[in-house]
Design a protein around this nucleic acid. Structure first.
Lengths: 188, 188
DNA sequence: ATTATATACTAATATTATTAGTTTGTCAAG
DNA sequence: CTTGACAAACTAATAATATTAGTATATAAT
């Protein structure tokens, strides 16, 4: 019976992410689940995360970092409409790849959590920069960010929760929605 | 110590709704909470709801009925763009009035639950009729329904979860978003 | 080689949901 | 008015989960 050190923070969080994505629903990540998956006892988890709440918080950070990374990569070398389309597709791809983690990421960060808030702001800043290259600034840009986030989150959230059941191409639905919004933005 | 009948199904579900709305997060409605609020013991709740899952399901039905009612009322005597705007504002008003119940209502109904599925379909049918009066039919209408729902749900969900923190008028953001989408729909 | 620390463990407790079985008002039928 | 069925409350017991306290040991550093 080994008391040897085997777990790394990465392994713990990635296992948790896998469980979250397999189960879909965040409420179904339990410390019991995670401990079993890692072959340790539940109380031993407290050496790695600050309880269930801490685990979810760590998962959120992890997810935001991933989303940030693929968003940065998506907009690299792009401006204007191309960049916005790239953001849209990166966002949706992230939600598909990490359905369980996704639902954590979109929650507003608690203001007292500096790291979460910083990550969240970084994402917003990217959007703001991209919209600036779409000739939107000031209050117009802020309204546009809200609108764009709403469009992306709304579609992706309904889609991953199974609300779009009809045998109708979801890619097409998404492309139309994004196109309509971006067209509308540029006609102000 | 009274074993007298005091509770009605309405009282139970409305108390649960109040708790859900006060706490915001659905995961924080507990049978313990609800029983305390009703001044009965937890097991006695099982005379009224089929466990926690049944309670949430009943709340969902209740919420859908409300949403359906205010949507019907909103579109009464309206067609085309007027009707769609009315639906949008009714939807948002519902989410503001019932933030806790709202998060239950938007989940895709389990196919085996006939009542939930029926209510959900009724809402979709209203949307479909309204869009038909906006000169959208067939696949175009289906894509449009997805888009419209995404817009509404996305904004309202982010808004009620506290994601729009900046001191920028949210009504204005919402109106712009909806206007952009509806404009885009009519220009196909 | 020795020691400090990280990390695993067991044991115990609190919270919540659930089931089983019992009691007692209430209401309607005779 | 009595009585009997039923609805709806109760207590008691169990299971799942999270959490804390305290202990033991392998690994890493000195």
């Amino acid at each position: 019976m080994a008391k040897t050190r085997r777990l790394t923070p990465e392994l713990v969080i990635e296992t948790a992410a896998r469980l979250a994505n397999e189960r879909g629903d965040v409420s179904q990540i339990t410390l019991t689940n995670l401990a079993a998956e890692l072959n340790i006892r539940v109380p031993s988890l407290y050496n790695h995360v600050k309880g269930l709440e801490g685990l979810q918080r760590d998962l959120t950070v992890w997810g935001l970092q991933q989303l940030l990374a693929i968003t940065r990569e998506a907009v690299l070398g792009k401006v204007g409409r191309d960049a916005l389309l790239a953001v849209a597709h990166a966002y949706r791809a992230f939600a598909h790849a990490q359905p369980g983690v996704y639902s954590l990421v979109l929650k507003a960060p608690p203001p007292e959590d500096a790291q979460l808030t910083a990550l969240s702001n970084e994402l917003l800043m990217i959007l703001q920069l991209v919209l600036a290259s779409y000739h939107l600034e000031g209050e117009d840009a802020l309204h546009a960010i809200r609108g764009f986030r709403s469009v992306l989150h709304g579609f992706v959230s309904l889609e991953t929760s199974g609300a779009f059941e009809l045998p109708l191409d979801r890619d097409e639905s998404f492309n139309r929605l994004v196109a309509i919004y971006l067209d509308g933005l540029s006609k102000n």
